[in-house]
Design a binder for these strands. Structure first.
Lengths: 189, 189
DNA sequence: GTCTATACCTTGATAGAC
DNA sequence: GTCTATCAAGGTATAGAC
């Protein structure tokens, strides 16, 4: 992974995947942008499936590392939630990428089974973490909402995924408005 | 439009677009399923762009027809909102399609400019209608929420688009939970 | 690790017969 | 309106030299 070329391929592929979708980026895009030939990419990632899979696994790993870090787990609910929101806005400010889950969910029935399985795991992990954060935050009275924490979590995750997509059509400010509304609805200010 | 073949092509293409995305359905898919040759499809829709465009325009037309119908405009806020929600659930129950806006928003940077423009118009119209419904509903005290109607509208639309996508990963019941949470947050029951 | 060269497939699209 | 036949372009992937 420290191999510079391999990492560059992975970074660029991730970016293209979230900007154009799985079926609309090619080895040619990658090779041209990186100034190498497509055979070189196949050396590092034998198949497109292997490449796609590593993109997902790396994201899972990042998410897991942050959320399981001892120093992060003891942060106030708001700080943890802010971090979560920021991870979406990083995409927005990087060429209007949509989130990985949203991108692969719309391509779901066209991607290899191994990738379906991996993105399923990621979405499950995100959902569990968010639900727990909301639940403990409500118990600690750091925020408030009605209904079940899991339902509210799903509602927020859907909202964030969708708002990155709508931002492409209606402008980036719409994402920020959606986020503002989320904070309002949680009484988290 | 009454032409049976043309309509069948449009229906099937719409379905494939919302299930697989713009770049993952082909004239071959259409011709095989309809039992005709790809040249016949090109007769009705000279280019894929023309086909994609008509799909969007038809959806815009449907939306406009319903929302501008005099009998619908005087319905209680809840009834109009219920109709809106049902239009998403129709997709969910038809082969787990995502909504047209969500599908084309993730493919946005890979579709022809004419389609970008059309889907932009649709999303704008949906946003305006939803914001007005929420605003007048709140004034009539048929529902309640904090913040601006436009922001809440965007929040709900994003949520609905996203939940159809997440439903593919986490199961259809998650969409219904998101919807339930939306009603709870609006005090609309 | 990266290259050249190439195989093989799918794609959107067109020409012209019927 | 639909067909057969065909095309050029772009896609993933592999073999083998360097």
């Amino acid at each position: 992974m420290r191999g510079s070329t391999k990492r560059k391929i992975l970074d660029l592929a991730e970016s293209l995947l979230q900007r154009r979708g799985y079926n609309a980026f090619s080895y040619h895009h990658l090779s041209q942008e990186l100034g190498i030939k497509n055979a070189a990419i196949h050396y590092h990632f034998p198949t497109k499936e292997a490449l796609g899979l590593q993109i997902i696994e790396r994201t899972r790993d990042r998410f897991s590392k942050w959320t399981n870090h001892p120093e992060h787990r003891i942060l106030p609910t708001k700080d943890q939630f802010d971090w979560f929101i920021k991870s979406y806005q990083y995409n927005l400010n990087s060429d209007n990428r949509v989130c990985l889950i949203g991108s692969l969910a719309t391509d779901y029935y066209t991607i290899p089974v191994s990738m379906q399985s991996a993105i399923h795991k990621l979405s499950y992990e995100v959902q569990i973490w968010t639900a727990r954060l909301l639940d403990s935050g409500r118990q600690a009275e750091e925020l408030s909402f009605k209904g079940r924490a899991q339902d509210k979590a799903l509602n927020i995750i859907s909202s964030l995924a969708g708002s990155l997509q709508l931002a492409r059509l209606l402008g980036n400010e719409y994402h920020y408005r959606v986020v503002k509304q989320i904070y309002i609805d949680l009484n988290l200010t």
